[in-house]
Simulated scan of single mutants.
Amino acid sequence: MWIFLTDSFLSIVDKGDQTGNTLLVRARRQGDIERVFPEAKVVDGAGTDYRYRARILRSQVADAIAESVRKVAYGNFKNEVSENDRHDAYFDVWSAMNKFQERPRQK
């Protein structure tokens, strides 16, 4: 699952652990995980394409994402992104999905 927040981009996946109680939260930018999960023990450079990663309890991930939804108080997401380079990256994703919307569905 990709989560785009105004100050963080996260990729959340189940890479399996022995208990099944954690998810792997990954980020491309330093600080993105910590902004959402301040107590996270983030590992730098131990993965494949995502530089930063942390194992976080599923319940904590669910609670944090739900809280982000509860805090939405804007009418335009892109206008709330204050970092210029993050805004540009998000706009590129928006543009790609806008083009995707217009293409006929392929089976």
Results as ranks from 00 to 15, higher is better:
90 Y>S: 01
62 A>Y: 14
4 F>R: 03
68 S>D: 08
92 D>S: 07
57 L>Q: 13
1 M>A: 07
57 L>V: 04
40 A>V: 00
23 L>S: 05
38 P>M: 11
107 K>N: 15
80 E>T: 04
74 Y>G: 05
61 V>D: 01
103 R>H: 10
34 E>G: 09
42 V>Y: 00
101 Q>A: 14
99 K>Y: 06
64 A>M: 04
30 Q>Y: 04
37 F>Y: 08
56 I>T: 02
24 L>W: 00
91 F>S: 07
102 E>A: 15
79 N>F: 07
17 D>E: 12
88 D>E: 09
74 Y>C: 05
70 R>L: 09
76 N>C: 10
56 I>Q: 05
5 L>N: 02
71 K>C: 01
31 G>A: 08
27 A>T: 01
47 G>E: 11
104 P>C: 05
79 N>S: 10
69 V>C: 08
81 V>C: 00
21 N>K: 15
9 F>G: 08
15 K>R: 09
8 S>Y: 05
12 I>A: 03
7 D>T: 12
33 I>Y: 00
68 S>P: 01
105 R>C: 05
72 V>R: 15
98 N>L: 15
59 S>M: 08
103 R>P: 01
48 T>N: 14
6 T>Y: 12
102 E>Y: 11
38 P>D: 12
40 A>G: 00
77 F>Q: 05
88 D>M: 07
54 A>C: 03
2 W>Y: 11
12 I>V: 15
19 T>P: 06
93 V>E: 02
2 W>D: 04
46 A>Q: 12
80 E>P: 00
90 Y>I: 15
32 D>A: 14
40 A>C: 01
69 V>A: 12
22 T>R: 08
74 Y>P: 00
89 A>M: 10
17 D>T: 15
96 A>M: 08
92 D>K: 08
32 D>Y: 03
50 Y>W: 03
45 G>E: 10
39 E>P: 01
72 V>L: 10
9 F>D: 12
56 I>F: 00
32 D>E: 11
56 I>Y: 02
103 R>F: 13
95 S>M: 11
85 D>C: 06
47 G>P: 06
12 I>Q: 04
77 F>A: 04
11 S>D: 13
93 V>L: 04
84 N>Q: 13
11 S>R: 12
